[in-house]
Design a protein around this nucleic acid. Structure first.
Lengths: 151, 151
DNA sequence: AATTAATTTGTAATCATTACATAAAAGAAA
DNA sequence: TTTCTTTTATGTAATGATTACAAATTAATT
């Protein structure tokens, strides 16, 4: 039973229905098998920026034959087809995000929640990088979130 | 025999002599033992942004009793005393930087070199993060460096 | 010199991720 | 349907960076 997470920034996060997810996967060249749909649903609709392990634990009660390897394989497939990006904030854990356009991440060091925020580093011109080809932009901030601050 | 790397951006990278390093460590509450001095020297003067493994391999011929654990311990000590920061660009490898003020990193996907560039995310005001306490800022870009582009 | 504290080291453990080979499922051909 | 082929999914073992830990070495203090 998946409950949707509260959406912090509606402007940059869209919940999809199962038919929409099926279509989205197909459109991006991915055959929409059950594990793929469920994994994408969890990633996109439920909880922000989970690790592979979190995805596995969230789905295993529902998809009782799911294996962790499948989660990893599926994330690699999603990556290859550019429908997810990896987020690196802590060493030793890769998180995933279904929002693929450039944006920033904020990780709260108290509650560990990861927030998206609108920010596109590609808009900035960096003199020192003239002559360089810029391909991927990453921005993240660590601190204490509003909700933890107010406690 | 350590040769100094060419410095790409003199403005944000300073080579230190051994006595300067000793003093810098002491000033920051770190007793300047031989391994600590050599590790800091390598980190600061020679090559930009090495992993613990790279530091170990670079120094083992000179400090023939050095152990990898010592490199890790020393980096943790440096971190605790805020004279280095960690850089995360690839999963599965932590790199270190002796430049601790906010700045960006560029990693070339061809030659794997990591460049510094001047950029302070703290200067940007991010509306969505009002009420949040921002503590650490991280910015990195991947692409192809000028030197590889020109080849 | 003897004692204590700090530093360094080697070995083993940890744990996320990957490799790989098999099993299961889906799709195509007959 | 049945058989054959391809794609997906799974379980187990391997990898490799980092950490834990205890012993050994070095430095500092009495």
């Amino acid at each position: 039973m998946i409950k949707y997470a509260e959406i912090e920034s509606e402007n940059i996060m869209k919940i999809m229905s199962i038919p929409e997810i099926k279509k989205y996967l197909s459109t991006n060249g991915i055959k929409p098998s059950l594990p793929r749909i469920k994994i994408f649903e969890y990633l996109n609709n439920y909880k922000s920026h989970p690790t592979a392990d979190e995805i596995y634990n969230a789905l295993i009660d529902d998809l009782i034959t799911l294996s962790k390897t499948t989660v990893y394989n599926t994330m690699d497939l999603f990556l290859k087809h550019n429908i997810v990006i990896q987020i690196l904030i802590e060493e030793n854990e890769i998180r995933y995000d279904s929002l693929t356009s450039n944006h920033g991440h904020f990780k709260c060091i108290k509650c560990n929640k990861v927030y998206d925020f609108k920010y596109d580093l590609a808009d900035i011109s960096i003199k020192e990088l003239e002559g360089f080809s810029l391909i991927e932009y990453h921005t993240y901030i660590k601190g204490i979130c509003k909700s933890c601050n107010e406690k």
